[in-house]
Simulated assay, not measured.
Amino acid sequence: MNYYVIAAGIVVGAAMGTASVSWIHRGVGTGWIVLGAAGVGVGCTMVFTAVALLLTGPDHFMVVHVVYLVCVVGLPLAGAIVLAFGRPSPLIITTLCLVSFTAIPVGVYATHIEPFWLRVDAATLAVEGNGEGIRIGVIADLQTTSIGNYENEAIDRLISFAPDVVMFPGDLHQIKAGQFDERAPQFTQLIQRLVDAVPVVYLVNGHSDTVAELHQITHGTGAKVLDNEVATLELKGKVIHIAGVSLLGRDYEPAAKLAVDRLANDDLPGMRILLAHEPDAIKLLKGDTVDLLVSGHTHGGQVAIPFFGPPITASSVPRHIAAGGLHELHGTPTYVSTGVGRERGNAPQVRFGVRPSIGIIDLVGEG
Rank of each mutant, 00 (worst) to 15 (best):
D280W: 07
D196P: 13
V51Q: 00
E153H: 08
G29D: 15
G309A: 07
V11Y: 03
A84Y: 07
G345A: 15
G270F: 12
G331P: 03
T30Q: 15
R157T: 10
G43K: 08
G170H: 00
V260I: 11
F61M: 14
L329M: 11
C44Q: 07
P185M: 13
L268W: 14
V294W: 01
V106Q: 01
W23L: 04
V72A: 12
H320M: 07
V165K: 01
C97A: 15
R193H: 00
P279G: 10
Q174S: 15
W117D: 09
K257P: 05
P88M: 14
L329N: 02
H297V: 09
I10S: 10
K283E: 11
R87L: 04
A162Y: 13
L203R: 04
V294H: 07
S295G: 06
V99N: 03
L35M: 06
V73N: 07
A110T: 13
H207T: 12
A212S: 09
R355I: 00
A231W: 01
I321S: 01
F101W: 08
L158S: 01
R262Q: 09
L203M: 13
Q174N: 14
V42Y: 06
N2A: 15
A314E: 04
T221V: 13
S315Y: 04
G178K: 09
V138E: 05
L363Q: 12
E253L: 12
E151M: 07
A256L: 14
V42H: 05
G287V: 14
N149V: 13
E213L: 03
F161Y: 08
I273E: 01
V12K: 06
M271S: 05
Q349H: 15
L118K: 07
V66L: 15
R355T: 08
T56D: 12
I305N: 01
T45E: 11
A347Q: 06
Y202M: 00
S89T: 13
N228E: 05
L363R: 00
G220D: 10
R355Q: 07
T221G: 12
L91P: 07
P269C: 06
V225H: 06
G237I: 05
R26A: 03
S100R: 03
V66W: 07
G107C: 15
I175H: 01
I139C: 14
L226V: 12
L233Y: 10
G129R: 14
